[in-house]
Amino acid sequence: MSRYDIPAPMLAKAASSVPDPATKPMLYEPKWDGFRGLIAWDGETVEIGSRGAKPLTRYFPELVEQLAGILPGPCLLDGEIVVATGPDGAQRLDWEALSQRIHPAASRVAKLAVETPAMFIAFDLLADGDEDLQPLPFRERRARLERMLANARSPLHLTRTTDDPELARRWLAEFEGAGLDGIVAKPLDDPYAPGKRALIKVKHARSADVVALGYRVHKSGSGVGSLLVGLYGDDGVLRQVGGVAAWSNAMRQQLVDELEPLVERDASGDVVTGEGERSRFTGAKDVSFVRLRPERVLEVRYDQLEGARFRHTVQFERWRPDRDARSCTYDQLDTVPGYDLADVLE
């Protein structure tokens, strides 16, 4: 058992633009798209805590083994666990490869640890030996983190920072090409605040017109829980690309009535259901959904793509009765120039 009590990580609230440091000194960092991790190294064992209550130690044996030989002394680090894939000179973060690591079979985890090894990107130092650094301002914690990791080597990396908001805005535009998903602004004079949204995150915001192809019933058993949406590929096939959730109670019930004319039924009049994609995170969760005729178009807000799907849950903007469903294709989505992950790590 580690000598450290791993706290809940400090969190961030969303902003629409990179904040100006005129009234409050800020340090800006790339926002890494991975698993939040707190690394506790007591000189004998490495433990990895997560943003939730689930320990991550067993899923990243390569980090446990290698960090023990890299860290200069007992410490508690806050950072992000990421996996990179792609050829040299064109590597990028790979969320799908990272998410595959959450697997119940130790043999599978061990295999993936060799095939797609993880890295840890450190961005805060919460304890140094027996000294609790959380009450110190971030500028002091960052300075001590830089000294501690001056000679660090892969898979341990120190995130880059800047105090220049213009450079941060450039990072916001460029680093997405390497799979990162935004910028985080951190007040330099603030102490560490476990579980509090005291940081500021700026992510990419875009819109797209998508087709409603089905809905899942809310967990209460009544109303629409999430609306599944899709886009047409070059082959003319409608593919599920994500879901819209966070409806109010009133809207959940209203949507059932609004979507009723589109519900697919068989020859007997029974509702036709589909089976949604199942992941390692859904487990035994019911992923069935009510199928809709692909006729209704809606505009949604999204931040980025992961492969052919939206990376996160998208937000409803408005219905688009003026749009033909067949016109909702991938062509409308932004394409991001590639950017080598190695240039972000340096």
Rank of each mutant, 00 (worst) to 15 (best):
R3K: 15
Y4K: 10
K13P: 10
S16Q: 12
S16L: 12
E29Q: 07
K31Y: 09
K31R: 14
K31M: 06
F35S: 10
G37H: 12
G37V: 12
I39C: 13
I39Q: 07
A40D: 10
A40N: 08
A40L: 11
W41K: 11
W41T: 11
E44Y: 08
I48H: 06
I48N: 09
R51P: 09
G52R: 05
T57S: 08
T57W: 08
V64G: 10
Q66S: 15
P74C: 00
A84W: 02
P87F: 07
G89E: 02
Q91E: 14
R92T: 09
W95V: 15
A97R: 09
L98T: 01
H103M: 01
R108L: 11
L112T: 06
E115V: 11
L126D: 01
R139W: 07
E140H: 09
E140Y: 06
A143D: 03
R144K: 00
E146M: 05
E146P: 05
N151F: 09
S154Q: 06
P155M: 01
L156S: 05
L158K: 03
P165T: 11
E166W: 01
A173C: 06
G177Q: 02
G177E: 05
A178H: 02
I183K: 08
A185H: 03
K186V: 07
D189M: 00
D189Y: 04
D190W: 07
Y192I: 02
A193M: 10
K196N: 04
V202P: 15
A205Q: 11
A208V: 02
D209Y: 03
A212F: 06
L213M: 15
L213H: 10
G214S: 06
Y215Q: 08
Y215K: 10
V217W: 07
K219P: 08
G221Q: 02
G225L: 01
D234C: 03
D235Y: 05
D235M: 00
V237G: 14
A246Y: 12
Q254L: 12
Q254H: 14
L262K: 06
V263R: 06
E264S: 11
E264Q: 13
R265K: 14
S268P: 01
V271T: 10
G274K: 03
E275H: 14
F281C: 05
A284N: 15
R291N: 10
L298R: 12
L298T: 08
E299V: 11
D303G: 14
R311N: 08
V314G: 01
R318A: 01
R318E: 04
W319C: 05
W319E: 13
R320L: 09
D322N: 09
D322C: 10
R323L: 08
D324E: 13
C328F: 13
Q332D: 02
D334L: 15
G338T: 08
Y339G: 02
Y339W: 03
L341C: 02
A342C: 09
V344N: 03
